[in-house]
Simulated scan of single mutants.
Amino acid sequence: MLEFNFSPFPVIETERLLLKRITNEDVKEVFELRSNPETMKYIPRPLVKNNEEALAHIALLDENINNNTGINWGITIKGDPKLLGIIGFYRTQPENYRSEIGYMLLPEFHGKGIVPEAVKRLIEYGFKDLKLHSIEAVIAPENIASEKVLQKCGFVKEAHFKESEFYDGKFLDKVIYSLLES
């Protein structure tokens, strides 16, 4: 079975991006991301209502890193510390050598190739450093932009679950994409 160790925290670079640890100093941007109905449209979780809830989210991310159960990075452009988004591995399954990748980006940065660049680098990190065998992504079927990112990064559609999650008074479909180490 895999054992993850996220200490020291791995700072990751791509051509344009610096993926860094999210800290309490990023509370404004975390609030902006998690309180925005546009960025949260396909994430079945309540909107963050204030800085305290944003800080609680940061604390949850820290807890997962400290317990080696998941890891998230803040997406920044090299040379600019402003957080543009969050990307990471959630719902890790060490016994199955599998983890779920997830990401969100402030709307003003959509369509600039930031998410595919970050996802491609995390795929490499997941397979080489974490020794994963497979990476999955769970998306809403109507989230066409995310579907395009995943397809561009080599993911294939594995399943479409009908009304498999109940959230906010309605049943939601979910689509699973995955990528095997090859």
Rank of each mutant, 00 (worst) to 15 (best):
Lys41Ala: 02
Lys41Ile: 00
Val11Lys: 15
Tyr125Glu: 02
Glu95Ile: 11
Thr76Trp: 04
Val119Arg: 00
Ser134Asp: 04
His160Gln: 05
Phe161Glu: 08
Val119His: 04
Ala137Gln: 02
Leu132Lys: 05
His160Ile: 06
Tyr90Gly: 09
Lys131Pro: 01
Ile86Cys: 01
Trp73Tyr: 00
Asp26Pro: 08
Thr23Tyr: 09
Lys152Asp: 11
Asn50Pro: 11
Arg45His: 03
Asp173Glu: 01
Lys82Ile: 02
Ile176Gly: 13
Phe161Trp: 11
Val27Glu: 10
Asn50Lys: 01
Ser7Pro: 00
Glu15Pro: 07
Leu130Cys: 11
Lys152Trp: 06
Asp173Ala: 12
Glu25Lys: 13
Val156Thr: 08
Leu180Cys: 07
Met1Pro: 14
Lys152Glu: 12
His160Glu: 05
Pro141Gln: 10
Ala140Asn: 14
Gly85Arg: 01
Lys170Ser: 10
Glu117Phe: 04
Ile12Asp: 11
Glu117His: 07
Leu84Cys: 04
Ala56Arg: 02
Glu63Leu: 06
Ala54Arg: 03
Pro37Glu: 01
Val27Arg: 11
Leu172Glu: 11
Thr39Gln: 00
Val48Lys: 00
His110Phe: 10
Gly102Lys: 06
Gly154Gln: 02
Glu63Lys: 14
Ala56Thr: 08
Ile22Ser: 10
Ile144Asp: 03
Asn50Ala: 09
Glu142Leu: 12
Lys78Ile: 12
Phe6Gly: 08
Lys157Gly: 12
Ile43His: 03
Arg21Ile: 10
Leu47Ser: 13
Ala59Phe: 05
Ala137Phe: 03
Asp173Met: 09
Asn51Trp: 01
Pro8Arg: 02
Glu124Val: 15
Leu60Met: 15
Ile71Asn: 02
Arg121Pro: 04
Leu150Tyr: 12
Phe4Tyr: 12
Phe161Pro: 00
Glu38Trp: 00
Lys20Phe: 02
Asn143Pro: 07
Ser7Phe: 05
Ser99Asp: 06
Gln93Arg: 15
Ser146His: 00
Pro81Leu: 08
Asp26Met: 02
Leu18Asn: 14
Ile71Ala: 05
Leu60Val: 12
Glu163Trp: 01
Thr92Phe: 13
Phe155Ser: 09
Ile43Cys: 09
Leu47Val: 15
Gly126Gln: 07
Tyr42Thr: 02
Lys20Val: 05
Asn96Glu: 06
Gly126Ile: 03
Lys128Asp: 14
Pro8Lys: 05
Glu142Trp: 00
Gly74Phe: 06
Ala145Glu: 03
Gly126Asn: 06
Glu32Asn: 09
Glu108Ser: 08
Ile135Lys: 00
Asp26Phe: 00
Gly126Leu: 08
Asp26Arg: 05
Tyr125Asn: 07
Phe161Cys: 13
Lys128Phe: 05
Pro37Arg: 09
Glu158Thr: 10
Ile139Lys: 01
Asn96Met: 06
Asn36Val: 04
Leu19Ile: 13
Val119Trp: 02
Ile123Gly: 13
Ala54Phe: 04
Arg16Cys: 10
Lys162Phe: 14
Phe31Ser: 08
Arg121Lys: 15
Glu108Phe: 00
Pro8Ile: 01
Tyr90His: 15
Pro10Met: 11
Asp80Tyr: 09
Ile101Asp: 10
